[in-house]
């Protein structure tokens, strides 16, 4: 799904985040977490497990801390030293909140991997090309500044006046010298950049965006299906199928037809990008086997 149109990607991730936040019922939550995890695995491969490993302590911490501040709940596991009960319901509620948080972070991780700076600036570029250019230039500014800072530090160090030597006063003075050298150099560079931009017609009129994302029939079909699935899921969630109560006792509305339909749609919607990826991979395998 790397080839997807940026608007579609943004739309999907926005919907996924909202859905993740609004559902409370464990069935939905587990489905959302699983979909987010599978997507990250399909996008980033084995490297995704590192992110997952970092999220487990988050879930645990939220789960264990919640009962300390929330003492509602019918089933008391233990009494805290300061006289408040530590309840099972509050613990479960903590697990629910932690899972929601972790799922959101998983969506964000996939989002970052899929939507590069270029795509983002492309979307802004349609309406405000100047802003988009500034955006990409700012992104480059920091690494460029860092490289130059290294050069400046090394240059002064070579004359025996690095900022790591001498008394505190000397260090401060040296720091000021280096900062001044760095800004002077950067300003000089920015004049050159501005000249280079104007020499190539920047500001000569309304620019044209050249990077094009093509929307093929398969992609359009996938989007239509996703729109349908999202509609069913939203109807179910709006109808209260995804609500749950944790305190004082854990209770859900009884499962019915609408619940099943909206859970299935919800799961399929969130899993669609992973399915598309899997299909693309499968097609690649098949095409390879023919060679």
């Amino acid at each position: 799904m790397e080839s997807w149109h940026l608007a579609a990607l943004l739309g999907f991730f926005a919907a996924a985040l909202v859905l993740t936040v609004v559902v409370q019922r464990p069935a939905f939550q587990v489905a959302a977490a699983a979909a987010a995890l599978v997507l990250l695995l399909s996008v980033r491969g084995v490297a995704a497990w590192r992110t997952v490993g970092a999220l487990v302590p988050v879930v645990l911490a939220v789960a264990l801390v919640n009962p300390l501040v929330n003492s509602q709940g019918a089933t008391v596991i233990a009494m805290l030293p300061w006289g408040r009960p530590y309840t099972l319901e509050a613990l479960l509620f903590g697990v629910q909140t932690g899972t929601m948080l972790a799922t959101m972070l998983l969506w964000f991780a996939s989002f970052n991997a899929l939507v590069a700076g270029e795509k983002l600036s492309y979307l802004i570029g349609g309406s405000a090309p100047g802003v988009a250019l500034v955006f990409t230039m700012v992104l480059q500014l920091v690494p460029r500044f860092q490289r130059r800072a290294q050069t400046v530090f090394a240059a002064f160090d070579g004359l025996g006046m690095g900022h790591g030597r001498g008394s505190a006063a000397q260090r401060v003075r040296q720091g000021a010298r280096e900062l001044s050298a760095l800004t002077g150099w950067a300003l000089e560079g920015s004049i050159v950049t501005a000249d280079s931009m104007r020499a190539r017609g920047f500001g000569s009129g309304r620019p044209m965006r050249l990077t094009v994302y093509r929307v093929g029939a398969a992609q359009a079909a996938a989007w239509a299906a996703m729109g349908l699935l999202l509609a069913v899921a939203v109807v179910g969630i709006a109808g209260g199928c995804a609500t749950a109560q944790f305190v004082p006792v854990v209770s859900f509305p009884p499962p019915d037809g609408l619940f099943c339909a909206s859970l299935v749609s919800f799961t399929l919607f969130l899993a669609m990008p992973s399915l598309v990826n899997a299909a693309e991979r499968l097609r690649w395998r098949l095409s390879l086997s023919r060679i």
Partner: peptide, 15 residues
């Protein structure tokens, strides 16, 4: 005592 002059003289100018 060694002194090393960098490739980019500009890196040393702060005044």
């Amino acid at each position: 005592r060694c002194a090393l002059l960098p490739q980019d003289p500009q890196a040393l100018f702060s005044w």
